[in-house]
Design a protein around this nucleic acid. Structure first.
Lengths: 144, 144
DNA sequence: TTTGATACAGAGACGCAGTCTCAATAAGGA
DNA sequence: TCCTTATTGAGACTGCGTCTCTGTATCAAA
């Protein structure tokens, strides 16, 4: 996806920064995640590809990508942060039993954002909904 | 609020556990927070009241309270966990500029929960919505 | 009241995600 | 080529939260 790289480069240049090899490799690795991932996942993927990018640099690149709106940062499970590439807005059902994360979308979210915008004069940038509960599989299991 | 203490005690006894002095003091301190708080806030409050409760015990009590549904645990800012006492369901607008957290409610949330329940057979336990963006004050400031 | 089993507490070591520091390096413009 | 400045990597460091271990408090039964 060269378009994504270009978009990143444009942002960096605008900020007086550079698209280095490390930043490009990091973004390429991110683009290959189809779902959410952690910083550690990303580091491992880079290591597997024999791309030497330090932990500090990976964290720095993640920060820049979040700042330019290409990446979303969330706290799904506890403790560690999850990232996901911003294809489309969606939300998460997290099962308290097995930890599975189901992604979903719903048109009502747009209405909600609109309500927030008008009622609170709040300029919405991102929107993360996390619903915890018990998924179908775990629910069935506990009924046995 | 003796009713809250009673409720906690009932849960503990049911689990074969005890309502100790430390647990009671911790819950009392929690009840006096009108908004969300961190574990560290809670420890400080206990210290200020000259109640000696160790860090480990505070964390353990928080865990029990979350497990019994009296307390909600969230990740609002980054890194550290926030807790809030479960008076009513509400959600958060987090300002990316100044970090201010605005609490809000909206009837659409109930519809959303219902949709999730039916479409995904997902048994909703809790529901945390975090919308990040720029609050009115910061928005006005940057327009000057 | 004594005894025994068990939940509980405190202290501090520990683990881990993420940040910071700093010297060496690379990149782009003049 | 030279100069300026952004960037990197290595590893020390921070801070939140957990784990371990030993001593203590509580409850039930004798």
């Amino acid at each position: 996806m060269p378009g994504e790289i270009e978009r990143f480069k444009k942002y960096l240049v605008m900020k007086g920064c550079r698209l280095t090899t490390e930043r490009r490799l990091t973004l390429e690795a991110i683009l290959d995640f189809s779902e959410h991932f952690t910083a550690e996942d990303l580091l491992e993927r880079l290591r597997n590809r024999h791309h030497k990018v330090s932990r500090a640099s990976v964290y720095r690149t993640l920060e820049v990508l979040v700042a330019c709106g290409m990446l979303r940062k969330m706290g799904l499970g506890e403790n560690r942060a999850y990232y996901e590439y911003h294809w489309q807005t969606h939300h998460h059902l997290v099962c308290a039993e097995c930890g599975k994360v189901i992604e979903f979308t719903h048109p009502l979210f747009n209405e909600l954002e609109e309500a927030v915008r008008t009622v609170y004069s709040f300029d919405v940038a991102d929107h993360t909904q996390t619903i915890t509960g018990i998924c179908r599989a775990c629910s069935a299991k506990s009924n046995n």
